[in-house]
Write a protein that binds this DNA or RNA. Structure first.
Lengths: 232, 232
DNA sequence: CGGACTATTGAGACTCCTCAACTAACGTGG
DNA sequence: CCACGTTAGTTGAGGAGTCTCAATAGTCCG
């Protein structure tokens, strides 16, 4: 799923055991389990709100969430979607910066900030995993910027679908799951809901993508699709 | 300058000595100096190119650089501007993802990836500083997305100037240094050069900002300016 | 001082946004 | 299980804003 975005790639060579710095070893997993707890959340559950005191850090075991901010204008901007193995809940000045809400039933590890900080200080390898995860998020954020930098709505949506395909493991059938709503996609791509809708219609009209249902896109012309996606 | 964006804010309380997790202690500085070297670079120097093998990580001691990517269309997108104390050169799959070029004369620390990785593994506190820096970059990237999400060019430019003011220490005179060119601002804000130029003219016409010269903006109506900046 | 690059300003085309009406999907309670 | 109400999404028309192209002015460096 994640493709080794190691901030310091060499370590994976040296460590030997740890091939993908985003995946925890069994021992590390157990160490985390000692300080944290597993939590199961129904869909549309707010995990925390922007401005709340940041007492926990979360790692997704299974499921999907969105991280968003409410702007003064009332407009909502989705900063990112997060899936299995992603990390969230990093604080700024001791407070959460975004609101996080589950899209579907989601299982997370909830780690108390204080205990985690202590653990990371003593376990360099473990902290390295966290560093890798944050670096990964940084790349994602950059990708989002290049996506938004595009002018054409169809191109933005295509890039979005393409990215989801890579993250959620596009199986050979070309089916990309889209667990979020059209409104969420609009809030992520910085388009209006109407434009997302029209863009989806346009992709379908051009025979690039078929939307089997609202949460499933099927890429029927990978070549043409890639051409559009890459035409940045 | 940087406002304590601790990923795990508690540690700064516990550590006692280390108030700002983005600033290194003297001992840490010395440890880095042992493995790295100081390097002085003239303006417009390419530090590394996208795709190069990532052999070093850099920390800016003084100066300013831009980090950008060339898109297939030939269009150039500036991912971020980096200043004193900022970190850059994190790899993805062992290669740099952006091209980095100095804007002005710049002094950097050049740290070999392998030695740094080894050092971080053994020094949790040091790694924590790096984790904080990457978290800080992540926030910056998010801010850029919200900036680009705006439709109006004047608002985008105002937000950009505001951000530079915060990062580069807007002195009480309201003067904001802009070490980059208009073209670079355009490539960062995802506007055309012409739109940046027109936006600057508009801000000046509305008596919000005066451009003393191309690299110096003076905010003459902080209230009105803040109103525009906040009207997201 | 000259030449190349960078920036400003104007006019027209293009694209998305807003507003509005309508349709589809969902889930809640009887 | 169905009916209803609410929310989410689609489609159309007109307006706002930026982009492109073009010409001109300014700036920086050798």
């Amino acid at each position: 799923m994640h493709r080794v975005p190691a901030p310091l790639p060499v370590s994976s060579r040296k460590a030997g055991r740890q091939i993908d710095p985003l995946v925890l070893t069994q021992a590390q997993r157990e160490a985390l389990m000692r300080i944290g707890m597993r939590q199961r959340l129904p869909p549309r559950t707010v995990v925390y709100r922007e401005g709340d005191e940041a007492r926990w850090v979360f790692v997704i075991v299974e499921g999907a969430v969105k991280s968003y901010r409410e702007l003064r204008s009332g407009r909502r901007l989705v900063a990112c979607f997060l899936f299995e193995r992603d990390l969230f809940g990093l604080a700024e000045n001791g407070r959460y910066v975004n609101t996080v809400e589950t899209l579907v039933r989601t299982t997370v590890y909830r780690l108390p900030v204080e205990d985690l900080a202590a653990l990371l200080k003593h376990d360099g390898a473990m902290q390295f995993v966290f560093l890798s995860k944050v670096t990964y998020e940084l790349r994602e954020a950059q990708r989002r910027s290049t996506l938004i930098a595009r002018r054409d709505a169809a191109g933005r949506l295509a890039m979005f679908i393409s990215r989801m395909g890579e993250r959620l493991g596009r199986n050979s059938t070309g089916i990309v799951p889209l667990p979020m709503s059209r409104t969420d996609i609009a809030a992520f791509t910085a388009l209006s809901l109407e434009s997302v809708s029209r863009a989806a219609a346009a992709l379908q009209r051009r025979n690039l993508v078929v939307f089997d249902d609202r949460h499933r896109a099927r890429i029927v012309d990978p070549a043409g699709f890639a051409r559009l996606t890459g035409a940045v």
